Simulated scan of single mutants.
Amino acid sequence: MVELNSVEEALDFLKSDASLPTDVSDVKFGGELTQFRVLIEGKKYHSTVPAALARGLWDFQEELYRAVAFALYGEDNIRRLTDEQKAYFELVFHVAEGSSDLIASLEGFFDKLADGFQNMDSSHKMKTLIAVVLTVAVVWGATNIVETWAETKQHEVTTAAEVKGKEIAVAQTTAEEAAKTAQFQLIGQIAKDNAVVGRFAKATEEGTRSIIKGAADADNIKIGRTNFNRSEINEVNQRAAKERATAGLSRGDYQVIRAEARVGGITRFWLQDERGQEFSATVFEDEFEAKGVNRLWESFRGRKKISLEVNATTIRGQIKAASIVRVFEQDVTINSTRPTDVVSTN
C-alpha cells in the first residue's frame, strides 16, 4: 500500500522511476490531497456565503460533474451520472468560524472515482488517478490562470531585485517560484497528453473563474494553493468580460428541470440540453400564445422533453444568457419534416 499525503509526495511519485501499482486500491490519499479549500477575505465574507458566491461554487461543482462523466463514460454529459453518483461526487463545504474559509473533503470523491477506473487499462489508470487527484487538490486551473501573468510578475521580481538588501530574499523567492512552476508544468503536460486529466484541468479553470466572479468584491481569494489579490480578482473578471461572446439561435430537445413565474408576464425556465449543460432561459409571455406557454409548463410537470428554438449567448462553450423564441409541436429528433410552430416571436 502506497500512501500519498501531500502534493510534493504525489508529484515525486509520478516522476519516480519506480513502477506504479496496477491496482488503484493500492494507493491511499490523505492530508492536503483530500481537501478542497477556498479562502475569501473581505467585508462581506465573515462565516457567510452570499448568493453570488454560492452560484460560483455551484458552477464549479457542475464542472466537476462534467469531468467525472467524461472520465467514467467518455462524454462530459451530466445526465450520464445517476442521482446516487452525484451525491458521491458532491462537494459539501464547511464554513470556518469568523471567515469565509470553505473546506470540502475530497476523500469520498476520489475513492468513488477510483472505483470507476477499475476497468481502465492497468498501465494507464494509476497515473491518471494520481494526476486527477493533483489537478483537483491544487486546483490546477487557478495556477494556470496566474501563469498567464508570468511575464508581468517576472518584471516585478526584477525591479524588486534592484532594491538594496533584497537580493537574497528575491533570489530565494524566484527559486521557490521556479520550483513550483516546474511542478505544475508536469501536471500541465500530463493534462495535454491525457484526455481525462485534461478535462479535470479544464473543470478547475472554469470553476476558478466562476468562484472569482461570484466573489468579485472580495479583497483576497485563495483557491487551492493559488492566491488572487484585489487587482488580480479585477483582472480575471475584466478579461472574462472582454472575452468574445457568441449569440445565435439553436434548435433541439430540452428537459425543463425548473420553472419560476415572475411578475409582469415574465417566466424563467431552467433547461438541460443534450450535453447535460443546464442554463436558464427567459420567456416573455406577452409574445407567446397561451398554448406555447402551457406546453412549457406541461413539459416541466410531466418531466418530458420539449422541442425549442433558443437564442443563447455563449462564452467559452458555456451558455451565459438565453431566451426561448419558439416552441414546436413535436420533438425535432422524431420528426424529419419542419414541425408546425405553436408560438413564435416576431
Results as ranks from 00 to 15, higher is better:
D217C: 02
I145E: 04
T333E: 15
D341L: 07
K153A: 14
L129Q: 02
N346H: 14
L53P: 07
V139R: 12
R251T: 11
V332D: 01
T22V: 01
A281H: 02
L14G: 08
Q330I: 10
D23C: 02
M120A: 01
T345L: 12
T174S: 15
K202N: 05
T135I: 12
G165P: 08
D219P: 14
G31V: 00
E75S: 15
M1R: 12
K202S: 12
E75R: 15
A161I: 07
T82I: 14
H124D: 14
T174M: 15
Y65K: 05
H124N: 12
L102T: 07
K127A: 05
A175V: 01
R295T: 11
I40K: 04
E151V: 08
D121L: 07
V236F: 08
S323G: 05
R199W: 05
V163F: 04
Y73I: 13
V38D: 02
E274F: 08
S336H: 13
R244I: 07
T48S: 08
R209H: 13
E285K: 09
F284L: 05
D286G: 04
Q272T: 08
A114G: 10
A321V: 12
V342F: 06
K44V: 08
I221R: 06
D331H: 14
I168S: 02
F228N: 01
W149E: 08
E63Q: 15
E278Q: 15
G98K: 10
A67S: 13
L249N: 07
A259R: 09
D341H: 04
I211L: 00
K28G: 02
E329C: 00
A195D: 09
H124C: 04
V132S: 01
V38P: 07
F279G: 06
R295S: 13
V157R: 13
S280H: 01
K213S: 03
E235M: 10
E298G: 00
S299Q: 04
K222E: 14
A191D: 08
K305E: 14
N144V: 06
G248A: 02
L81A: 13
H155R: 13
S280A: 12
I315T: 11
E151S: 08
F284E: 08
F29T: 07
K166F: 11
D273T: 12
D253W: 13
N234P: 09
E151H: 09
T204G: 00
A312Y: 04
E41N: 10
K180M: 07
R258H: 13
I168Y: 11
F36C: 08
A259M: 09
I266Y: 13
D115F: 01
A104I: 11
G108D: 15
L134H: 01
F200G: 06
A114P: 11
T345I: 15
A175G: 07
S122L: 04
R316S: 05
T345M: 10
D12I: 02
Q238N: 11
E329V: 05
A322P: 02
G141L: 03
D193Y: 03
L134I: 02
G141F: 05
R80L: 14
L57C: 08
V236G: 05
V196A: 02
E167Q: 10
D76Y: 03
A182Y: 11
V138A: 01
A178N: 13
Q330R: 14
K304W: 01
T159K: 12
N294H: 11
T82R: 12
K166C: 03
V196C: 03
F328T: 00
G302C: 00
V342W: 06
T226C: 11
K112N: 11
D121T: 06
D76E: 09
G248L: 05
D59A: 03
Q318I: 10
